[in-house]
Amino acid sequence: MKIVEFLQPAAVVDDLAGTSGPAVLGELARPLAEAHGIEPQRLLETLLEREKLGSTGIGDGVAIPHGKVPGLPALMASFGRSRRGVDFKAIDGKPTYLFFTLFAPENSAGAHLKALARISRIFKNPAFRDSIMKAADAAEIFRLIETEDAKY
């Protein structure tokens, strides 16, 4: 499974405006909601419910908010970069700059876990994270993710 199978270029936000976790998650839900005809609030609530269980801020400036959505036909994702950083209650206590949201169909545990593992794997690379932070725009961010993902 490749990340580009569930992340589309239109779902990459290169400069998140939100200064709080919920605001950022709302921004990241919007392009997916529009592209798939889903109510944005439904996606946002899915992410907020998951965050109540514990932050998906995995540290090193990265968060992977995720959740399952009943009726969703397939995996879908969005990515966003915050140049200022957001207090996302990450496990290392540091600001979060890179947000990769993942939504999965209700009965897709295997695909959901494989996708989370793949996302986590590519974002463990400090040089890759740095290149994402320096990218000029959303198109370059998508190309960087696509290139890094092809290595695995």
Rank of each mutant, 00 (worst) to 15 (best):
I3C: 03
E5S: 14
E5Q: 15
F6R: 00
Q8K: 12
P9Y: 05
P9T: 07
A17I: 12
A17T: 14
G21C: 06
G21A: 05
L25M: 10
E27D: 02
L28N: 00
R30K: 14
E34P: 09
A35K: 12
I38P: 03
E39L: 14
L43V: 05
E45F: 06
L47S: 06
E49M: 14
R50F: 09
R50K: 12
R50L: 10
E51C: 02
K52Y: 07
L53A: 15
G59D: 03
D60A: 15
G61M: 02
A63L: 02
H66L: 08
G67D: 11
A74D: 12
L75S: 02
M76E: 06
S78T: 09
R81S: 09
S82A: 06
R84M: 11
R84K: 14
G85K: 01
V86L: 00
D92I: 11
P95F: 07
F100P: 01
N107I: 12
N107H: 15
S108L: 10
A109M: 14
A115Q: 04
L116G: 02
R118T: 02
I119F: 09
I119R: 06
S120Q: 09
S120C: 13
F123R: 01
N125R: 07
P126K: 08
R129S: 00
S131Q: 15
M133Q: 14
D137K: 08
D137W: 09
A138C: 09
I145G: 05
I145Q: 02
I145R: 04
E146V: 13
